[in-house]
Structure formats: structure tokens, C-alpha cells
Amino acid sequence: MKIKTWLATALCLTALAACGGGGSQSGASQPTQNSSQGEKTLVVGTNAEFAPFESRQADGKLTGFDVDLINAMAKAGNFKVEFKDQPWDGLFASLNNGDLDVVASGVTITEERQQTLGFTDPYFDISMIVLTPNNKKFNALDDLKNMTRVAVCTGQTGDLAVQKILGAQSPKIARFDTVPLAIKELQNGGVEAMVSDGAVISNYVKANGVDNVTINKVPEFGTDHYGFVVRKNDTATVTMLNDALKKIRANGEYDKIYAKYFTN
């Protein structure tokens, strides 16, 4: 009986080892290591409704400035990436619970976000704009206070900017899930203005032939910066991403990708 028991135990342990059953389950919170090639795989979360930074082509393939940039960084930095497309409002929670290693989704670096999240070096400069119908005069940010409804995308930088002007709980703020939805509401007369990132607004207006709106540049908004997001204090991933970003800036790959999306 002792011999049978020993054999059964040995077989069980062998099976577990072959299936990885005895391994650590902490892989969800750390980048996956590819031992055969020495490359790490980062799970990158994005919300593919923010062209030209991230969107889906007709065939379903992810595309955009952020996507191309991360892929180029992965090649330069000797790591791999796996993209996960999901709603914007769940990205940071997925990052913090370990389902994602990085968020690459046009995220503005703010002091408030830096309290709970880690950021890479800035990789893109952005300015907020105010979009209005052609028949609506706009001169300064204070004009928003006299409007009935102002459209923003929920949780994005435009939302935060308008909250500072109208108040966080103002009933004048009309929130939408995506930029296209907000702009369509503006075109339909449901709102008097829309506030969002200039590059995204300009891309949509140009790509869709929208000619009944005015893009108003607002110097008071200043310049913001996008960064890739990691968990707070994840210095290893930040260092890896920053090193890769420096490499593609130095070898000219960053400029090629920028020209693809932002040079007329």
C-alpha cells in the first residue's frame, strides 16, 4: 500500500508540474515573461473610439497613433504587447486590479491622476478647443457660462476642464461616451458647444467632411501632455517604456509615425 501511495503521489506531482499547477498565480499583476526569447509581454488597454490615437479599421484591426507608437516601442525595447480594447471608464480599474499592465488611450497627465497612477514621460502635446456651430459666436471661456448645454466626453480632459468653469455638478454639462456622439449632438442643435482635445476634434471634422462648425482655439487652456499609464510605483515598466520611447525618438521612428497621422 505504501508503494502504491508513493507512486500515486509522484504521478500527481508530475502532472501538476507539467500543467503549471504548482506555479505562482501572480502573473495577472506583472508583465508576462517569455522565457524562450527573454521578452516580456505587456497587456495594453485602450478604448478604440478616439481617432486618430486609437480606433478600429473596417476589418476590425486596431489602428492609430498610440497603437503604432507602442508597437514601435516594443520592437525597439525588446518586449511584446497584447492589446485589449475596452470602455474608457473601466481602463484605470482594470490597470489597478492587474488585468492590464499599461493604458495607452490618449490619457492626459494631470496632478490629480498622478496621485493614484504612474505615468511615462510625455509623448504628445495637446491643446483643448471649443467646437461651436458656425452661427454661434464664441470669444472666451466665460461664454460657456451663458450657454444652455455644453457637450463633453465623460471623464476625459474636456469634462474636467468644463467642470472647473461651470461646476462639477452643473446641469449644463452634457456628457457623452464618445467624441462622434458629442459632435452629432452639436450638429443637431442639442448643445451649443463641445469641448475636447484639438487633435481629435480636427481629425473627426476633416475625416467626416463636417463644414457647419467652427474650431475655436482657446489660449487659456494652455498645453497638456499625453502619457502612457502604469500602476502607481511600477517603476520597472515606466523605465522600460521611457527607454523605448527615447530610442524611437532618436532613430526617427517617432517622427515617421507622427507624420502619418498629423502632417497634412
Rank of each mutant, 00 (worst) to 15 (best):
K2F: 14
K4A: 15
L7Q: 02
T14A: 15
A15V: 04
A15S: 11
A18Y: 11
A28H: 10
N34Y: 01
N34T: 00
S35Y: 12
F50G: 03
S55P: 00
V67A: 05
N78T: 00
K84C: 02
G90L: 10
N97Q: 12
V102D: 02
A104F: 07
S105T: 06
T110M: 10
R113A: 10
Q114R: 12
Q114W: 02
F119S: 07
T120V: 09
T120E: 10
D125T: 08
S127D: 14
I129F: 12
V130P: 04
V130W: 02
N134C: 07
N135K: 12
D143K: 02
L144E: 05
K145W: 07
N146F: 14
M147V: 03
A151Q: 01
A151S: 13
A161R: 07
I165S: 04
Q169W: 05
I173L: 04
K184I: 13
L186H: 01
Q187D: 10
G189V: 02
G190H: 12
E192C: 09
A193V: 01
S202F: 02
S202L: 02
S202A: 15
N203V: 06
Y204F: 13
N208E: 11
N208S: 08
V210F: 07
V213H: 01
T214E: 11
I215L: 14
N216D: 08
K217I: 00
V218Y: 04
F228Y: 08
V229R: 01
V230G: 03
V230Q: 03
K232V: 04
K232H: 11
T235G: 12
T239E: 15
T239C: 11
L241P: 06
A244L: 08
K246V: 13
I248C: 04
N251I: 05
G252R: 06
G252I: 08
Y261Q: 06
N264F: 01
